[in-house]
Design a protein around this nucleic acid. Structure first.
Length: 425
RNA sequence: GUGAACGUAGCUCAGUCGGUAGAGCGCAGGAUUGUGAUUCCUGUGGUCGUGGGUUCGAUCCCCAUCGUUCACCCCA
């Protein structure tokens, strides 16, 4: 067994059995993005390592220990992208997209070397959405409306929206210092994780799950009280827009996000149905990022959703409302000339009915074994072409899922029959 | 990176208190002429994750390794 070569740990094959969920999710989101005027962008899955170091932040977990980095043959350090925002900003700078506002989206695999567990894999997939050049909270609201629309379209309930504001970069940095001195003044009760976070991401300490830390956290200075007034106004505007749209949300002062580039708005859609990995979609504003990467200052807002996690939610649903993958008809062929007649007939049907799902039997065999395959394929009708039918220019139609007697049609009538029966156009 | 549980046929699992293994489903064929799904019959299936150790002998014990799962950490 293990003599065989296996897939890389944490990197999964998505098999035909599951692909319907993926396609449904992707198609639904594509449709919605299109309706809001967002355009797709495709960037390489590898970038120079420096791009991620500069955008995500040197001391974040992602950069410090989770990136798939290696040296190219010419010595450049390259990295499989751990997220999409940095590439998207880079591509926009490089191709001059920042001359006007942009609404972009992308979809694809991301890579992070973490220990796999439910809802967390080393190659995972995201749909990411970014908007550039927009300063007001209306764009954040639009994005949240869009995600809420997706949940509705997919029938996903039990997703809760949490929002927070980190303030301006300056306010956030000042608050960070305040927090560090607060926690440094009480070093005793800080657990090991929090000690580390003190240097990496002190805001993260507020999110600790350790019960012993709670009293200390409760007494800590509050981020919302340290917001600059512009950010506060911005945050209030967002809340107002959400309320007006009837989208309920929760302000979570502990919501800080792990990547360094966020300022002002951050938000997450969370669920309790997926165990420890409850965040299904998350994002925020990153006004300083473009400059950090070397472009001109350009406000940005974006979010990303984890496709594996959403697929897991869809799979738990009772009525996922997936498109029917079963063939409409299965063509059985046996006897002299039936193969040639049958395959030609199949092509004519496909010409006439582009939406027909028709499976032609291949590989010969008795009618009996062909019927077994027809049944197994899930097809609704068996189209039977034997010697007799070939001679008479007819075809037999057997209902495989209904208790109705078999019929015999002229081959020339078949397309019209199928169109009517399946309401195809 | 840390901790725990697990790894037997394509799938879901049983089993051997250490003497090289079974079931169900699946798959293939059949039950008189060109008809599936039901029923019946037959067949196909695994060096028991891999490597090493203990032993006369290990799939079962021990160690390592790879993988899976869940949690911590972190994140989508």
């Amino acid at each position: 067994m293990s003599k065989n070569i296996q897939a890389i740990r944490g990197m999964n094959d998505i098999l035909p059995e599951k692909i319907l969920y993926w396609q449904h999710l992707e198609n639904t989101m594509r449709r919605i993005l299109n309706a809001y005027g967002y355009q797709e962008i495709r960037t390489p899955i590898m970038e120079k390592t420096e791009l991620f170091q500069r955008s995500i932040g040197e001391v974040t977990d992602i950069v410090e220990k989770e990136m798939y980095s290696f040296n190219d043959r010419n010595g450049d350090s390259l990295t499989l992208r751990p997220e999409g925002t940095a590439s998207c900003v880079r591509a926009s700078i490089e191709n001059g997209l920042f001359n006007q506002t942009q609404r972009l989206w992308y979809m694809g695999p991301m890579f992070r070397h973490e220990r796999p567990q439910k809802g967390r894999y080393r190659q995972f997939h995201q749909i990411g959405v970014e908007a550039y050049g927009l300063q007001e909270a209306d764009i954040e609201a639009e994005m949240i409306f869009m995600t809420a629309r997706l949940w509705r379209a997919l029938g996903l309930k039990d997703l809760a929206l949490q929002i927070n504001s980190l303030g301006s970069a300056a306010a956030r940095a000042a608050y960070r210092d305040t927090l560090v001195s607060y926690f440094s003044a009480h070093p005793q009760p800080l657990d090991e994780d929090s000690q580390r976070r003190l240097h990496t991401n002190p805001l993260r300490i507020l999110d600790s799950k350790n019960p012993e830390m709670q009293p200390l956290i409760a007494a800590a200075p509050r981020l919302l009280e340290h917001l600059d007034s512009d950010s506060l106004t911005h945050f209030e505007q967002l809340q107002q827009l959400l309320t007006a749209a009837g989208i309920s949300f929760q302000i979570n002062p502990r919501l800080v996000r792990g990547l360094d580039y966020y300022n002002r708005t951050v938000f997450e859609w969370v669920t309790t149905a997926l165990g420890a990995q409850g965040t299904v979609c998350a994002g925020g504003r990153y006004d300083g990022l473009a400059e950090q990467i070397g472009g001109k200052p350009m406000p940005g807002v974006g979010f990303a959703m984890g496709l594996e996690r959403l697929v897991a939610l869809l799979e738990e649903q009772e009525n996922p409302n997936l498109p029917d993958p079963n063939p409409h008809a299965y063509l059985l062929m046996a006897g002299d000339k039936s193969l040639q007649t049958g395959l030609l007939l199949a092509e004519q049907l496909r010409d006439a009915l582009p939406n027909l799902r028709l499976l032609s039997h291949c590989g010969g065999g008795s009618f009996k074994s062909q019927f077994k395959k027809a049944d197994k394929s899930g097809a609704y009708l068996g189209l039977i072409l034997g010697e007799e039918e070939v001679l008479q220019g007819r075809i037999a139609v057997k209902y495989l899922r209904e208790d109705k007697p078999q019929e015999s049609l002229l081959q020339t009538e078949l397309a019209a029959f199928l169109a009517a029966y399946f309401k195809l156009c």
